[in-house]
């Protein structure tokens, strides 16, 4: 059995926890976010027939990378970066975090960017064009934790990317 730790990153309020909840069945309450800043969830997925247990560390949202507890990031095999489509600043602040993440422990790890709250189409503040541009550099998913659109695919893709990353050094 393969287990992979992944982290959910993003500024507060973008829907990290909602996405995680949409993806897994929770056993811990959100109160852990406010107490120790992280809540762990788990989901077993199958990537090409291989079962992979995703241990999802849903980190409390922070506006600055410095405020993250980097120890929580250690040991991750990948991460999902969540952005709120209805709030452009979440992407702008998020980009700063993302860059610093790449420079840190999580550098060179597989990741994907989730543009969340897609169901609120009339309030999108990030244009399709911008999203396309970003998609040139990283896998991008338009998601809605509310409807569930794109969430499963995002996690599955990350799982698949992580397995590929494992195989590359070996080959």
């Amino acid at each position: 059995m393969i287990q992979k730790k992944i982290c959910m990153l993003g500024v507060p309020g973008v829907g990290k926890t909602s996405c995680t909840e949409r993806f897994v069945k929770n056993i811990y309450s959100d109160v852990y976010h406010s107490t120790i800043g992280v809540k762990v969830d788990k989901k077993i997925v199958h990537v090409d027939g291989t079962p992979v247990t995703l241990i999802i560390w849903d980190l409390a949202g922070e506006n600055n990378f410095e405020r993250y507890r980097t120890s929580y990031l250690k040991g991750s095999s990948g991460y999902l970066f969540v952005v709120d489509l209805t709030c452009a600043s979440t992407y702008e602040d998020g980009l700063n975090i993302l860059r610093k993440v790449e420079d840190s422990e999580l550098g060179n790890l597989p990741y994907a960017i989730l543009f969340n709250k897609a169901d609120l189409m009339d309030r999108w503040e990030i244009s399709q064009e911008t999203i396309h541009q970003i998609a040139q550099h990283a896998p991008v998913f338009i998601t809605s934790a509310k409807t569930g659109d794109g969430v499963e695919e995002a996690f599955m893709t990350l799982a698949s990317m992580m397995l590929q990353a494992d195989q590359q050094p070996a080959s």
């Binding site: 852990y32 992280v38 762990v40 241990i55 560390w57 507890r69 120890s71 250690k74």
Partner: peptide, 20 residues
């Protein structure tokens, strides 16, 4: 107990939290 895999991760998180 609860799911030991999650417990294990939370335990690590708590350790890190305390140390940090």
């Amino acid at each position: 107990a609860q799911d030991p895999q999650i417990v294990s991760s939370m335990l690590s998180a708590i350790r890190d939290f305390v140390r940090d």
